[in-house]
Design a protein around this nucleic acid. Structure first.
Length: 282
DNA sequence: AGCTACTCCTGGTAGC
DNA sequence: TGCTACCAGGAGTAGC
């Protein structure tokens, strides 16, 4: 599933192909993919020029201009099976193509999405649309002190909170499981009981996992995620718990177990991630 | 307000 | 072989 590292990879690889290009036409093949109504999408996108492509949380943001003035943005969320890629005009659209944007260099930006959960919408005020997201985990503001203070105000379990994009932006099921294992924290730990040094460990684990995953162009454990170039990522080779139920923990050899937390498959090592906090030595 | 359950979708797979 | 039932999952929304 595209999470922060996958979306970051898509932004990096797509950028040289779309920044500076004008959108000359749009072909909407599934209306809900553009927010339900093709007409405002068409009006917002066609004739505009892409001046920037950035990532915020799991969103791709294509900033648009008309006659040199800001003209909103296209926001794309890939959800589980969305894929963006640029092809020559002659290339045939796949059977899962949901939106096609024709560019002024004769090429076409394809938004494919098997499960139709993804979105490519026109947003006149992108800053407002993205305003409720939590901090970026790779930015300096996300540190142990911030996380500890933020966790103390929450009554719920650790994992559902880390998946909440309003709390922290960009993590999904895979990277939460991987980060919690590396930090030695059980996903069902109560957020407000996480101690300062544990929050610090979690910050370092999240940063480490995301940085490694970005370096490997994300994770492709099934057939869905591919870079815009059509290649799989490589971080699935570094999974320690995700999709490894029954296999030995790479740290202690105990079998990885799979439980369900907030309707999500959750993978952990019961030995390295104890349910009760370890006694502090001091 | 803050948390949990349900919904959207479809391909793949397990079971018969 | 071919059918059915069920699973995966991000995030918006409804409900407690």
């Amino acid at each position: 599933m595209p999470e922060l590292p996958e979306v970051e990879t898509v932004a990096r690889l797509l950028r040289p192909h779309v920044v500076g290009r004008s959108i000359t036409d749009a072909d909407v093949r599934w209306a809900r993919s553009v927010g339900g109504s093709p007409r405002p999408f068409f009006a917002g996108a066609v004739g505009a020029r892409v001046v920037r492509l950035t990532r915020r949380a799991k969103f791709l943001r294509f900033d648009l201009e008309r006659a040199g003035a800001d003209a909103g943005a296209l926001l794309c969320h890939l959800r589980m099976t969305g894929r963006l890629h640029v092809e020559p005009r002659a290339a045939q659209a796949g059977s899962y193509a949901r939106v096609l944007l024709h560019l002024d260099d004769g090429r076409v930006l394809h938004f494919d999405d098997v499960r139709k959960f993804g979105r490519l919408v026109f947003e006149p005020d992108p800053a407002r649309a993205l305003a409720n997201l939590g901090p970026e985990p790779l930015e300096a503001a996300f540190d142990g002190a911030w996380l500890h203070a933020a966790l103390r105000t929450r009554r719920g379990r650790l994992k559902p909170l880390l998946l909440d994009q309003g709390f922290l932006a960009g993590l999904g099921n895979i990277y939460v499981d991987e980060s919690l294992h590396r930090a030695g924290l059980h996903p069902l730990r109560l957020a407000h009981r996480v101690r300062a040094e544990e929050a610090q460990r979690l910050v370092l684990a999240v940063r480490e996992v995301l940085t490694r995953a970005i370096a490997r162009d994300g994770s492709s454990f099934d057939s869905f995620y591919r870079t815009p170039e059509g290649l799989p990522g490589g971080f699935q080779d570094e999974f320690r718990v995700y999709d490894r139920a029954g296999e030995p923990c790479l740290t202690c050899r105990a079998p990885i177990v799979r439980i369900v937390v907030g309707q999500r498959g959750t993978h952990l090592c019961g030995c390295c991630q104890p349910r009760r906090p370890q006694r502090s030595s001091r």
